[in-house]
Simulated scan of single mutants.
Amino acid sequence: MRKVTSKMAPTKWTRANDKACVIPEGFTVLPLKFYSDTKAQHSLYAKEHKVRAENCPHRPLDKTLFVLNIPPYCSEDVVKQLFSQFGPVKSVELGDHPGSFHSGPKLSKHFTPAQKQCFKVGYIVFHNRSSVAAAKSHPHNVALVVCSTQHTVKTGVPKWIQQYKDAFVQPDKLQGIVDDFMKNFDKKKEKEEERQRKEVEQQKDDEEGWVKVTRGPKGNKARPRSEAANKRAIQKEMRKKKRKELLNFYTWQHKNTQKEHIAELRKKFEEDKQRIALLRAQRKFRPY
C-alpha cells in the first residue's frame, strides 16, 4: 500500500498569532521576557503619541511612541536597546506618570533625588516615522528579550552590590561634575543678563512712559513691550495708586473732604452776594 501524507492547513488561531494584538484605546500589546528561555512574560502597552495639547519640540507626534507598564528593572538604556530593533532610537524618557518631564539640560544623578522603584511610562523618540509603525505591528507571539548574551542586565544581589558601589564617588570626580554644572549655570546666567540688557537699551522710554516704536526687518512695526518695560509701567501705576490712597485712605475721610469743600463754596458764594449788594448801593445816583 502507498503511504499517504497530508499536510494540515494552519488554523485561524495560528495565523492570528503572527499579527499584532491591539486592545481598546489603540494600545498594542508587546510581550516582554527577562530571559529568552523563561516561560513567564510581561506585557507592555504601546501606542503612537498623539497629544495635541502638548507642545514639546523634543517629542514629535509622528516619531514618538508612548509606552505603559514598563517594569522597574528596565532603565533608559535597556528600553533604548529593546526598541532599537524597530529602528534607530533618538531619545528615551521614563517617568512615574504621563505628562511633561524635566525640561532642560539633564542633571547628574548626584543632583537629582532617587527615583521610585515602580512601573513607569515612557516616551521613545525614533529618528524615522516607519519605526513607530513597525513597533505597532509587532506580533504578540514574539517577545522582547531584556537580558541576552549581547546585552546583560544585572538583577537581584548583583544589582544591589553594583548600586552600593556606585553610591560612593571619588572626590575629584564629584568636583569635576560640580565644576561643569557651575560653568553651564554661569554661561546661562550671563546670556540671560545680556538679553535683558539689550531689551532695556532697545525699549527705553521717557519720563512720561512713551516708548519709541521701530520697524522690524520686514517693515512691520515691532512690539515695544518687553519684560523690563512692563515692569517699569507696573511700578509707575503702583506709585500713582499709592499717592491716591494716601490722600484718601478711608471712605469716610473722602466723604468729609467733599462736604468741607461744598461748605466752603457756599460760604464764598454768600460773601460774593454781599459784596455785590454793597457795590450796587455805592453806585446809586444822589444829586443832592
Rank of each mutant, 00 (worst) to 15 (best):
Q85S: 11
S43C: 14
E245G: 02
I124N: 01
A281K: 05
T5P: 08
S130H: 07
S103T: 08
K191E: 11
A167N: 12
R283E: 10
C118K: 04
K33E: 04
D18V: 00
K173N: 13
V153A: 06
V79T: 07
P31G: 03
S75F: 06
Q253H: 13
K7L: 13
V92N: 01
R239P: 07
A46L: 00
H151M: 08
D172N: 12
I177Q: 04
S137I: 10
A233Y: 02
T5K: 14
K63H: 01
L265M: 04
E245C: 07
K90F: 03
D62F: 02
F168W: 14
F249G: 03
K240R: 15
K267V: 04
A53N: 11
P158V: 07
Y45G: 02
K204E: 10
G87I: 00
M1D: 09
K3Q: 12
N230L: 15
V200W: 14
V92G: 03
F168T: 09
Q175S: 12
R223C: 15
C118P: 03
A20I: 00
T155W: 13
A143C: 08
F111Y: 04
R2T: 10
L30G: 05
K90D: 11
Y35I: 06
E25N: 02
L32N: 04
K259P: 07
E48N: 11
E48P: 15
A46E: 02
D206F: 04
A167L: 12
K3R: 09
A167E: 05
A40G: 08
K255I: 09
S131Q: 01
P217I: 04
C56V: 08
E25F: 05
D77C: 12
H49C: 11
V89H: 01
K7E: 10
F168A: 13
K188W: 00
F27Q: 06
W13T: 15
V211N: 09
G26M: 00
T64L: 06
I23R: 14
V51G: 12
V200A: 15
